[in-house]
Amino acid sequence: MASLPITIQIISLIGAFTFMFFIFRLIVKGRLREEYSIVWILCTIILIVFAVWRKGLEQISLLLGVYYPPSLIFIGAIFAIIFFLVHLSVVISKLQNQIKTLAQEVAYLKQQIDQQTVKESAVRAIPSENDEPTVVAEDKVLPQ
């Protein structure tokens, strides 16, 4: 019992640090925003804590009255995952709204540019001897 946990301890520590390194690299490269990395950093910290504190899981389970310690891991992990998924849905909804607004604004700008080019080409089409300015119908774009 004494030597076996040491190996698994080292393996889990290596795993946790690799994961943390991976997260940091994503942030540094700008592929992960800080606000979404917090939850992952917290996860790694928890992993490291339990890798070092071997009796931790058992002691907490005992304290909470959980008879089978691994089930505490499952419930904790499932809660964390559900929470994070909801958070992601919120983020996606926000993005969708922003995209919608942006798409609409792009459409207005496109329309303004089109209208301007139509007007300009209408002005150019009129020969210079015609002194009267082009009359564009009250509130209608001229067809090209």
């Binding site: 919608k100 798409a103 609409q104 459409a107 207005y108 496109k110 001229l142």
Partner: peptide, 29 residues
């Protein structure tokens, strides 16, 4: 484009709600 009317060309598909919203916003502005 060939019709004698105003038009908006949405760059992504927004569905009927988003399309109408674009139209109503345009009317308001």
């Amino acid at each position: 484009r060939t019709l004698p009317c105003l038009y908006l060309d949405l760059p992504v598909n927004l569905g009927i709600g988003g399309a109408m919203h674009a139209g109503y916003k345009y009317a308001w502005r």
